[in-house]
Amino acid sequence: MFDRLIEEAPRFFTYYNMIFVLQAMGTTLLLTAAGCITGFIFGFIIAAIRATRDPLLKPLRFLVIVYVEIFRRIPFLVTLFIVMFAVQIVSRNVSLFAIAVLSICMLSTAFLSEVIRAGMESVPRLQIEAAETLNFGFWRTQFRVVLPQAWKVIIPPAFAFMVMFIKDTSLASQMGVIELTFTGKSLMNRGFSPFLVYGVVLAGYFVMSYPLSRLGAYLEKRLASA
């Protein structure tokens, strides 16, 4: 087997193949980054909606809970296909990449909203009451009092989910999005050994997710001592 790998290596590690792999890694990272950023923004909005108490907002709270509970429970591959077919009803010209971005954002929003909600709920109710009696409004209370205390609880699990999103983006290859896993399939089809191809894919995922896990572990440690 090693003979074959050694023999194939010069043909495999060519400039164009490596550019192909690196570009695909870029796509994977882009999908993940889009998911994380959107997930944090919309996740916070959902968590904030769930923290409201106004009876008028009850239908909205109900809707976001349904959304979160559904999208946390269905496999990501199914989310991808649901989004793909739903989008195609509206327009046939949407790129597969856009569909993948939309899907990962829906997934990350659902998961991160729960992490953010748990973090916000870890802040004692009395802190919020104190803010209320000082005439802080809802958003000022969230941004000045709740979030600055909640992020210690939010960061560690959020990093674990970000690593999960990197891995989940691989499912977008099933729709034909050219990300890292797709390059593996494509290079295999060109006759390269699966060990060589998926060895490189494995290394690619590791290089992307390991620093993120380490950063998460580092922050967790720093926050625990703070």
Binding site: L126, Q127, A130, A131, T133, N135, V145
Partner: peptide, 26 residues
């Protein structure tokens, strides 16, 4: 709430702010 202020049993100072900030923020 502009005209009355309350001090709680559990103090309820904002944990993420120093003393001066706690007192001056409102």
């Amino acid at each position: 709430r502009d005209r009355m202020a309350i001090v709680f049993q559990q103090y309820n100072l904002f944990q993420n702010m120093d003393v001066l900030k706690n007192v001056t923020i409102a």
